[in-house]
Design a binder for these strands. Structure first.
Ligand SMILES: [Mn+2]
Ligand SMILES: [Mn+2]
Ligand SMILES: [Zn+2]
Ligand SMILES: [Zn+2]
Lengths: 136, 136
DNA sequence: TAACAAACGCAACATTGTTGCGTTTGTTAA
DNA sequence: TTAACAAACGCAACAATGTTGCGTTTGTTA
C-alpha cells in the first residue's frame, strides 16, 4: 500500500514523494528482483538522475537492496524488515535461473558455514546459478 | 615466465602477442586480485580497446577470471590450471579485506553446502567481506 | 619467407554513474 | 491553513567503461 510505503519512507527520514512511492510499487510488484532496464522501462518518465538518486536514497535507507549477478546487469529487490539506515542484514542467497533468467532472493534451508583459517568474516554474499523451482 | 605464458596462450588458440604476455605478467605478479584501475596504470601504453579486448580474450580462454566485489570495481586474477576455454571452474572464495582493501582468492577449509529445496544448483559464487590473515 | 587470420590502434557511439545548480515540493510548526 | 525551509527534482554537463567497425600491423604456419 501507498500508506505503508509512505510510513516506511518517513521512518527512514526520507520524504514520501510520488516518485519514491511509484518506484517502490514497481519494485514490490515485480515477483523477483527487478533488473535496472525494467525499472527504466516502467519509469521512463523519470529523469535519469532522479532514478539514480531515488535508488540510492532507498538503498541507503535500507528499503531496497541490490542483487548483483556477477558482472551482468544490476538487480533490485525489496529489503526485509530487518534492514535500516544503519545497514543491510541479509542472510539470503541470490539465485539466477538459467531457464527463466529471473533473479530471486531465496532462503537456504541450512546454515551456510564458510571456514577460512585466520580470516575474520563480517559479511558473506552468495550468488547461485542454476534452475529455479518454477522451471524444474 | 614468458615462455610458459606463451604456451598457455597457444594452448587456448590465442596468439602469444607482446601485449598479452605483458598483461599476464602484470596480473600474475600482483599478489592479490588486481583492480582494473591498476591494470590501466600499469598498462597505460595500451589502447583502451586493446586492454578491453585482451582481457576478454583471456577471460574466454580460461586464463584469468574476474573477482567481482559487489558493485565496486572489477578485479582480475589468474585462473588455476583447471579452467579452460570450455569454462571456468572455481571453487574458491573472494575475500575483500576491509583493512588493506585487497581482494584475494582463498580456499575455504570446509566444503560449502547450500541447501535450497527444489532448486538445481550449477554454480556458486561467494564473496566475503572481512579481515584477511595479513591484517589480523 | 610468403600468405592469412588474428590482433591492434583509432574513431565513434552507448550506457551508466556522478555532480552542480536553479526550481519545485513535502513536511513542520506557527 | 499557511508560511518557511530543507529536501527532492529536472536539466545540463562531464567521467568512466563497454562495445563495434575498419584499416593496418603482426604472429603463426606451411
Ligand atoms: Mn536479495
Ligand atoms: Mn578468484
Ligand atoms: Zn526459473
Ligand atoms: Zn588485509
Amino acid at each position: 500500500m501507498d500508506t505503508e510505503f509512505a510510513e516506511l519512507l518517513r521512518d527512514r527520514n526520507l520524504k514520501a514523494t510520488p516518485k519514491r512511492l511509484e518506484l517502490l510499487s514497481v519494485v514490490a510488484k515485480y515477483n523477483s528482483a527487478i533488473p535496472y532496464s525494467e525499472l527504466q522501462k516502467s519509469l521512463h518518465h523519470f529523469d535519469r538522475v532522479t532514478l539514480y538518486r531515488t535508488l540510492n536514497a532507498l538503498l541507503d535507507g535500507g528499503i531496497v537492496h541490490k542483487a548483483s549477478v556477477s558482472n551482468e546487469e544490476v538487480y533490485y529487490a525489496m529489503c526485509k524488515h530487518y534492514c535500516s539506515s544503519e545497514g543491510h542484514h541479509h542472510k539470503h542467497v541470490h539465485l539466477k535461473c538459467k531457464e527463466c533468467l529471473e533473479v530471486s532472493c531465496v532462503e537456504a534451508k541450512n546454515t551456510i558455514v564458510i571456514d577460512i583459517p585466520n580470516v575474520e568474516i563480517d559479511n558473506v554474499e552468495i550468488e547461485v546459478q542454476g534452475t529455479c523451482s518454477k522451471c524444474l
